[in-house]
Design a protein around this nucleic acid. Structure first.
Lengths: 142, 142
DNA sequence: ATGTATGCAAAACATTTGCACCTGG
DNA sequence: CCAGGTGCAAATGTTTTGCATACAT
């Protein structure tokens, strides 16, 4: 029961919060905008307002249940926090997102912050490229 | 004369474009929002509309004269393209921005993209931390 | 001249907020 | 019951666009 997660965050277990969490858990692309979540709720026949989706996602983020990223443009995307930190590589054509972790990069970032007298709080690393998936619009002919 | 840069970009050399370029060149913080540029123009007594600032910055970006970043929140910041690629470290308290380049990180990014079958197009790396500048609000007492 | 560029106001978005009503514990 | 949560509509902040006018070449 992930409802415990909601409760532990000090939030009442309400229908919108449970449903939003379910949507995020069932999301294979791993990264959705607030609008995406809202649309899927509507598809599922739920009567939940967009404003509530924003409020719930913001609360989840504050509680550490969810992470918010800015991949491009002026839209925020949300993903379930599955515990392990990772960065992202995004296909500039099909929008597909993969996650990765690189200890060398992590170490270098810490070193750079230290050298420059910054107490590191976090970072955002996104690699943009074109993937080779068959469904990617820019797939080269083979 | 940087006006050549404007001309080379296939754009007419107009007063708004020259002035915006001047503002960016004279900016010590290196990173301004469209609104920042607009305010400075007004301070300087120019009669240039905010919409024009956005249009000019967008054209400059397309021409490679300027780079656009998303440091945090839903605002875009612009900086003059001075040729050399670099990443950013931003103070989460005072907003100060420093630039850095790390070849190890650059190499690892290329390797990660290759391993995963992405033709790398670019990347965005921002480290967030608290700086130790005297004027930084969170400066620890010494 | 003439195709571009600009200014202004209005539109388009993403996100937030005020408020009366509803609901979970 | 009642503090907290929700829906809706309106407000906000940023960026874009339509259109009549002004300008660079």
């Amino acid at each position: 029961m992930e409802n415990q997660h909601i409760r532990k965050a000090g939030l009442k277990v309400t229908l919108p919060r449970v449903k939003v969490l379910e949507i995020l858990q069932g999301d294979s692309s791993l990264h959705m905008t607030a609008e995406d979540v809202y649309k899927r709720l509507i598809e599922n026949g739920e009567e939940i307002g967009l404003a509530t989706v924003y409020r719930v996602l913001t609360q989840f983020e504050a509680a550490g249940l969810v992470e918010k990223h800015h991949f491009e443009g002026n839209v925020s995307v949300f993903e379930l926090n599955r515990g392990a930190h990772h960065d992202h590589i995004v296909c500039t054509d099909c929008g597909r997102v993969e996650e990765f972790v690189d200890d060398v990069i992590e170490d270098r970032q810490r070193a750079i912050a230290r050298e420059r007298g910054f107490a590191i709080k976090g970072h955002s690393l996104i690699i943009f490229g074109e993937c080779e998936r068959p469904e990617c619009p820019h797939r080269r002919e083979s």
